[in-house]
Write a protein that binds this DNA or RNA. Structure first.
Length: 407
DNA sequence: TCTGGGGTCCTAGGACCC
DNA sequence: TCTGGGGTCCTAGGACCC
C-alpha cells in the first residue's frame, strides 16, 4: 500500500491563539516574545506583523524599531499547549497514528484511509474545518508519501494551505524550492553551498554521494543526498526520548559579580533538578554554559561516577565547573545549567545510587517537589539569604501585555 | 539589528583497553 | 624507527530546529 502522510502545521500559532482569545487584537500586528525594552527576541508574530518585516528570532529591539505600534505580548506557553492538546485530540478521529513533533506541528499517518474517508485532499479539508470549529485557528496541511516531503508541502502553501505532492512528482516539487527551504539546511550550510557554487536543488542533486560526504561530512552529506531525491532521510522517524535537560538565564545587564552568578546557578540547579525528578529521570553529566559579553559561548562538563542525587549536589558540581572557568573582570551575559545522559530513574539500581548523604537530600527534595507541585511555596533558605539579584529587581514579566519600553 | 530558551544530533580529538 | 585497528567513553564546540 502506498504510504500517505499528512503534515499539519498551525499558522502563526502563538499569535493566532492570542488573537482568538482577545478579539481586539484581530487584524493587529501581534508580536510575542521578550519585553520590548529587554534583550530577548521575537518568539512568534502574526502575519500582520510580518508585513513590517518582523519575524521570529529577530531581536525584540529591532522588531520594536520596525513596528512600534505593534501589540507586544509575553509567551503564554501553557495556554498554547492547552489549545494544542485540544487540536491533537481532534486528529484522533482521522488517524490512529499521530506523531506530534512540536506544540504546533504533527504528522498523521493516513496510509490506507482512502477507502474510509475518500480522496486525501477532501480529508485534509475536513481536518482544517474541524480545527477551525474547535479553536478558530487556521492551519496548513501538506500531503505526501513520506514525512520529509509532507513537511515541505505544508510549508509550501502557507497560510491556510493545502498542498499534495503526488507520487511521481517528487523531484518536480523539490526543484521548485529554494535550497534554504529544505529542512536541515540552515544559514551556515547555505553559505558553504554558495562558496561551492551550489545555488539550486537540481545542482545539489548533481553531486555524488561521496562528494557530498566529503564536502559536508558523513551524516550531512548522506542527508542531502537522500532528501534532494525525495527520499526521507529518516530524521523524523524515530521517537526521540529525552537525553538532556537544561535551564539558562540571560542577565538584563552583563555582570562581573560572581555572587550574582552563583545565585542564578543555585536557582537554575534547583529548577533543572526539580524537572528531572518530576519526570523520574536522572543523569550523570553536568554541563555549565557561559556566554560572555562578546557573545562567545563556552561549556564545561563533568561526568560523575554516579547519577545525580540532589539539587545540592548539582549546584556543588556546577560551582566547581565555574571555578575552573571564571575569569575576573570578564563580563558574563548568560549562564546555563544542563544535565546530559538522562535516563529513567528506575533503570538505575537503587543500592548503588547515592551515598547516604545524597539519598537523604534527595528525599528532602522529593518532598519539597511534591509540596511545590501542589501549589505550595517553598524557597531555599540560601536563596532568600543571598538575595543579590540586581537583574530581578526590575521584575519579571507578568500577565498581560508589556508597556512601552523604557527609553 | 545585536542577538532567548529549550532541545537534538554530529564531529573531532584524546584517553584507554584489548 | 615506525608504529595496527577497533571499540568505548569523554570533552568541547557547532549546526540546526521550533
Amino acid at each position: 500500500m502506498e504510504p500517505l502522510i499528512f503534515h499539519v502545521d498551525m499558522d502563526a500559532f502563538y499569535a493566532s491563539v492570542e488573537q482568538a482569545d482577545r478579539p481586539e487584537y484581530r487584524g493587529a500586528p501581534v508580536i510575542i516574545g521578550a519585553s520590548p525594552g529587554g534583550r530577548g527576541v521575537v518568539s512568534a508574530c502574526s502575519y500582520e506583523a510580518r508585513r513590517y518585516g518582523v519575524h521570529s528570532a529577530m531581536p525584540i529591539s529591532e522588531a520594536y524599531r520596525r513596528c512600534p505600534q505593534g501589540v507586544y505580548l509575553p509567551v503564554r506557553m501553557e495556554r498554547y499547549q492547552e489549545v494544542s492538546a485540544r487540536i491533537m485530540e481532534r486528529f484522533q478521529a482521522f488517524s490512529p497514528d499521530i506523531q506530534q513533533i512540536s506544540v504546533d506541528e504533527a504528522f498523521l499517518d493516513m496510509t490506507g484511509t482512502e477507502r474510509l474517508f475518500g480522496p486525501p485532499e477532501d480529508t485534509a479539508r475536513r481536518i482544517k474545518e474541524c480545527v477551525y470549529e474547535e479553536t478558530g485557528l487556521v492551519i496548513s496541511i501538506g500531503i505526501a508519501a513520506n514525512k520529509f516531503l509532507a513537511k515541505l508541502a505544508s510549508d509550501f502553501d502557507k497560510p491556510d494551505g493545502l498542498f499534495r505532492v503526488r507520487p511521481g512528482e517528487e523531484l518536480q516539487f523539490l526543484d521548485r524550492l529554494d535550497l534554504k527551504d529544505l529542512w536541515g539546511i540552515g544559514s551556515k550550510t547555505l553559505e558553504r553551498m554558495h562558496e561551492y557554487g551550489i545555488s539550486s536543488v537540481p545542482q545539489l542533486r548533481s553531486f555524488s554521494r561521496e562528494t557530498l560526504r566529503g564536502l559536508f561530512g558523513q551524516a550531512a552529506g548522506e542527508y542531502m543526498y537522500s532528501t534532494v531525491r525525495g527520499i526521507d532521510p529518516g530524521i523524523l522517524a524515530k521517537e526521540t526520548k529525552s537525553r538532556s535537560l537544561s535551564g539558562e538565564h540571560t542577565f538584563p545587564v552583563d555582570t562581573r559579580d560572581r555572587e550574582a552568578v552563583h545565585n542564578v546557578l543555585l536557582e537554575l540547579s534547583h529548577e533543572v533538578m526539580f524537572r528531572l525528578m518530576k519526570e523520574e529521570l536522572s543523569g550523570r553529566t553536568v554541563v555549565l554554559k557561559l556566554r560572555y559579553d562578546d557573545f562567545t559561548t563556552i561549556t564545561v562538563r563533568n561526568s560523575l561516577r554516579h547519577p545525580l542525587g540532589s539539587a545540592e549536589e548539582l549546584y556543588r558540581v556546577v560551582r566547581e565547573l565555574l571555578q575552573q572557568k571564571w575569569e575576573r573582570g570578564k563580563a558574563v551575559r548568560l549562564v546555563g545549567v544542563g544535565i546530559h545522559g538522562v535516563e529513567p530513574r528506575q533503570s538505575i539500581r537503587q543500592g548503588e545510587l547515592f551515598a547516604d548523604e545524597e539519598e537523604k537530600k534527595s528525599k528532602v527534595e522529593q518532598t519539597v517537589l511534591s509540596i511545590k507541585s501542589k501549589g505550595g511555596k517553598i524557597q531555599k533558605a540560601s536563596l532568600l539569604r543571598g538575595a543579590r539579584r540586581p537583574d530581578k529587581a526590575s521584575g519579571e514579566a507578568g500577565e498581560g501585555d508589556f508597556g512601552p519600553p523604557s527609553p
